[in-house]
Design a binder for these strands. Sequence first.
DNA 1: CCAAAATGGAACACTTCTGCCCCAAAAAAT
DNA 2: ATTTTTTGGGGCAGAAGTGTTCCATTTTGG
Lengths: 195, 195
Amino acid sequence: MFRMVVERRRLESRVRSRTRQAIIRAAVEVLGVDSAASLSDIADAAGVSRTTVHRYFAERADLLEAISQDALERFALGAERADLDTGSAAEALDRLCQELFELGDVVLLLFSEPQLITGSEWEEENDADRAMRRVVERGHREGAIDQELSPSWVAEIVWHLLYAAWRHTKDGASKHESLRLCLHSLHKLITPATR
Amino acid sequence: MFRMVVERRRLESRVRSRTRQAIIRAAVEVLGVDSAASLSDIADAAGVSRTTVHRYFAERADLLEAISQDALERFALGAERADLDTGSAAEALDRLCQELFELGDVVLLLFSEPQLITGSEWEEENDADRAMRRVVERGHREGAIDQELSPSWVAEIVWHLLYAAWRHTKDGASKHESLRLCLHSLHKLITPATR
DNA sequence: CCAAAATGGAACACTTCTGCCCCAAAAAAT
DNA sequence: ATTTTTTGGGGCAGAAGTGTTCCATTTTGG
């Protein structure tokens, strides 16, 4: 009896959490194309009524906040999956890029909607950035990454290369080719100058 | 008598053209920060009444169109000033970057408001892109630019490096240091791999 | 100084989006 | 099978932005 009461509301029901995810994903997709899209547009894309959207996210700002959170979590998960402490720094950075490349639509949205990343949780270094910094510092020590390039600049570049690659796919290039170009460019960039 | 009539409306009066410029510049600045800014915001930033904005640009879309045109012209002017046929391809590309870097706020806006570059005039290669392509092709012939990197990819990268550099300044870095990093990164990127 | 050009301010109707409410229907859980 | 959960649709009031008009005022140019 007690168990029932306690467990009943501990987590969201699967139905609700699936619906919530669907709305967030749809929002990312739609807002990526038109950052001024209305909640109706998002609801349609999610295959849900506008009423339902409001049930999950009372105000538009709440939805945006949720998108922001979701993005951070997905970035963190990608960084984790990249298993950065294995192999050379260059290889680790490669794997990180490959993981983050999968999140292209999120990257696209964050670039085209800078308002989203003005929250306090973006002020401090997020998990992906922290992961990048660690790899770059390791690369510096191991002599695999140009010392002229600060970790923050490398991070900036990585995000932009990912963005560029993703845009390249939107222009018709294959995902594989785009990712290849992205990694090739990154390699040349970070390789220390031969002297 | 005839001459007066003919010349009177051949061009806009200096007053009008100055006001028009002020509105466009203000719009670029304001929309770069918040792409959903209202016409009132833009009018305020331009030091002009909303009525006046409407006098110059009947609809919001007309203002956006004007911004788009203005951007194209400024890019073209930058490409022209870069004097691309002088010196090595790498040097020419450097100069082009330096010119375009001056247009940071425009680049910022175009990246954060992709809707702006969906017009037909952006479909075809614009002057800056064409200029880049020519330089890259020259670099390929002269062996100064990695043949693996297609002109379109180099162009994509250049825009992103410029954008990254401009964002870097928004994060507190000096313009000079940002530009230096941008050019340094570009050099490493385009230099053919030593084999 | 005078006429024309350019601007500012206020008001107006119109549209769109938003946030909220209620109730009936559908889906899921027990 | 029935009870709870979740959803859809409709309506409604309020906010905000837009496009337009009219008139008074300022600025410009001759």
